[in-house]
Design a binder for these strands. Sequence first.
RNA 1: GCCGUUGUGGCGAAAUCGGCAGACGCAAGGGACUUAAAAUCCCUCGACCCAAAAGUCGUACCGGUUCAAGUCCGGUCAGCGGCACCA
Length: 809
Amino acid sequence: MDKIAVEKKWNKRWTEQKVYSFNEKDVANKHYVLEMFSYPSGSKLHIGHWYNYSLTDSYARYQILKGKNVFQPMGFDAFGLPAENYAIKTGVHPQDSTLHNIEVMEEQLKNIGAMFDWDHEIKTCMPDYYKWTQWIFGELYKHGLAYRKKAPVNWCPKCNTVLANEQVVGGLCERCDSQVVKKDLTQWFFKITDYAEELLQCLDTLDWPEKTKAMQRNWIGKSVGGEIQFQLENGQGSFKVFTTRADTLFGCTYVVLAPEHALVDVITTDEHKAEVQAYKDEVAKTTEIERLSTAKEKTGVFTGAYAINPINGQKVEVWIGDYVLATYGTGAVMGVPSHDERDFKFAQKHNLGIIRVIKGATEDVDDTLPFCDDGVLVASGEFDGLTSEQARNAIVDKLATMGKGEKKVNYRLRDWLVSRQRYWGAPIPIIYCPHCGEVLDENLPVELPYDVEFTPDGTSPLAKHEKFIHDVVCPKCGAPATREADTLDTFVCSSWYFLRYPDSKNSQQAFNTEWIDKMLPVDKYVGGAEHACMHLLYARFFTKALRDMGYLHFDEPFKSLVHQGIILGPDGNRMSKSHGNVVSPDEYVGTYGSDVFRCYMAFGFRYIEGGPWSDDGIKAINKWLDRVERYVLSAYQDYPTTTDFGTEEQQLNRVRHLTIKAVDSDYNEFSFNTAVARMMELVNAIAKYDQQPTKNAQLYRDTVDDLLVLLCPLAPHIAEELWQQTGHQGSVVVQKFPAFDESATKASQVEMLVQFNSRPKVRINVDATLNAQQLQELVLKDPKVQELLQGATPKKVIAIPGRLVNIIV
RNA sequence: GCCGUUGUGGCGAAAUCGGCAGACGCAAGGGACUUAAAAUCCCUCGACCCAAAAGUCGUACCGGUUCAAGUCCGGUCAGCGGCACCA
């Protein structure tokens, strides 16, 4: 078979006949399969795309065979920096390059032979899409979930834009690895922190990889504790500290404020002013990375001020130190050197007191090290004898009655910074009016102008576009106004695309509530694990926010999530141009066709693991598919036939049904490698049966028919071609998954393993229906067993029908 | 340091509720067919021991539970991913 020609033929025919279109009338039976959409970069689809898209498509095809009404759309995450950077380098406008790349990629995606529903395609850079991205911004704004504030933000000097916390990896820009610096800027934020608790709680309800859920939990970073108020000694006011260890409060010997803390300048005494200012200057100069390094020494200086520990009235020194972060908790911590690693180091260095107030269960107290575990309180007045856990509550409760403390939960999650000082993104629909201030523009879309000078210089390219900025009046008062020049982070665009797909042509709304309530949540979402704390978190936030506004009525967008593994280069490194280990799928697809390539990827890797690329087995898969062809055609040739159903027939039928059962669950679990292995076993059984001089044609043909249907998710074109060549009506891709007949898998006689002292010794054929008692009796009577027993009486016999018999002597 | 995850032949990997470890393939070796090659088909293929039969060892390491452990329990080590001065 000329596999390439066959692929072209069927691909074309399926598209013409719309074999794959979703039936909107049968929405109750829908199965929404979604692959993370791709970024239309200039380079072609790589192995990773193929691995993700082709095998998830196999899962979708399997669902069709199982009678599901599958919705599997595709689109493009088309805004973003790479197109803009490409434009800066080459002068080709981002819109032109993006739209061109999309065309090329559409063609490539079609060649995979996947059944994407192109009628619902989305391109996020088109006004008919970003109009609704802007609308969602407006809704968030109206509900207090989008706001503007001046804050120290992450700035990438190379990309010339701010970044979200999630886009800073180890102090470096996620995209270009430049060192990120802090800048004080007024920026737009989404209030994702309002949903921190729900985002955390709902993780338990999701069928997601444990790893991903753990990463989100970690990122949200909930910590339960208390806020404790310290009065300043000389009546200059008070400040709060956040702690998870209120039980150690009696051990507090000093407090530390973040150098940026507002109170620092107020409380510093004259004699310490110079030193404090010098320290603050020093801190401002160090980079974020240096400052956050755990290896760095715990530096700090005394302010000269004192505060009162509210639980015991002790006077403690107030220090500043850069290990206290202004952006977490209250920007102030209490120092308990006896029970905290960092405080201990800090106290040692600066000669501060160390008072031990928690005793461990064991008595081997080592006072040269901090004791950081829970224990029992000592030297803590009325709280002596309480466990740490009891004391945490008791102490905060006591403080609460004094008005000096309260229980408090803190999250590490920060609000999502969405402004970007770049061109190629959705404009933020905000107008600034000299009289009314910040006004939401509801006249959408706010179109992104084409003729923009986008060479980055640290200011937003749109700011330099006179017409865009100034050709606007205030919607409230009609006065001449100006537009917001920043654009939205592309992650905003991708935070709701799965809601748009089912209703992609709706020009009146972002989506119809009633309709997407039926179509969502996504039943199976497949994409890379690298999105754990960005896209997957943002999309959940959007879903919950839109739910609370009444635009939809479900809690989570992605019910079940699968991460495909990563295909590494042959050298075991991540494929990249710099490693020079990039493998292109094109050559393989050109030589063997997409079915062979897909089957090879299916068989060669555990789907969720991935691994280093090697093409050692691709020829074998090609041969195997040829073998399938030979036997399928052989079954339909003329040969001496019989209607008998003897041992050989039973054998074949048995393997056939075991294969049906196994492949069914394998597809369902994305275990494509074992699915192929099972089908290989079936083909081996068929090959053996083919040797029979006289064959049961009915059984033989039914069996190869089943094989073609089982194979069709992984090799749709080849299966279809053979289906047609053997004279079937209709397309194989919409057949019913073969029915499993359990009785066919049961032999009347089974080979039973007999062990002596747990070591395999003898095999005897027994009736399959015997119960444990009968089995034991029969086995003990067996001559071979008798011989091994040599007259001894077994101490114990374990007989398990269907498994084994173990004789202990 | 914390969280998660993975350790099985020369290689990719299988193994249901604890029940014959290595299915299915690749590579390798041997053979059939062929003038030859390709294609196809058959056999061997964890290690040790051995003429063979039999036997011993073997799922990262140490220990435990069990008639029986890749699988369960306790501990250790290594790889991978994430977080990390978060109070």
